[in-house]
Amino acid sequence: MNIFRLTGDLSHLLAIIILVLKIWKTRSCAGISGKSQILFALVYFTRYLDLFTNYISLYNSFMKIVFIGASLATLYLMYMKFKATYDRNHDTFRIEFLLIPVTLLGLLVNHEFTPLEIGDTVLVVQVLWTFSIYLESVAILPQLFLVSKTGEAETITSHYLMALGSYRALYLINWIWRYYFEGFYDLIAIVAGIVQTVLYCDFFYLYITRVIRGRALRLPA
């Protein structure tokens, strides 16, 4: 565990806490894409299946449980408790355009090179892990699409997106660190992590030039 990995995790944790608090405090999920939140829930469930098969550390298990729990809480708030405030008309990204390619890619390009055997738990966990890595890299697209469609984002939503985007960028530095000091790398995670971070670049620019200077995030018409 290096400092970039730790700050990356804390940034990720901060993001999901900001989101839950924003919805809870304002009693509204306006401006938040439910589709992105469904995709993130799917990411956590498929990646953290190893909670049951592979113990790593108390820290690791704790964070996984928090991510799954917060993700479920977000979905509950959006689709049940504050359903009336959900921006359904603007949240129109077609998630099957992400899910289908990502599923195919997960089946084709993963770390498990043995032939497919039905009922092979290790293989299933591995393929689902890979699927989750690919899915996470693009899961923010419905949210970015919603922001571009409405042309604006609340400042608190911008902070959420900034924390969520920074997390994978910090992981990228963590992977460079691990490559140099531990001689370890994971090509699937690295490529997906780069894609994930690149998708946020436009938003990072807007955040730095507008939100930090105290202005609302409003896109040029």
Binding site: R5, I56, H111, N174, G183, Y185, L187, A189
Partner: peptide, 10 residues
Amino acid sequence: ITTGAAKDEL
């Protein structure tokens, strides 16, 4: 150099 899934990460 070792490669593989970074399963200790989140």
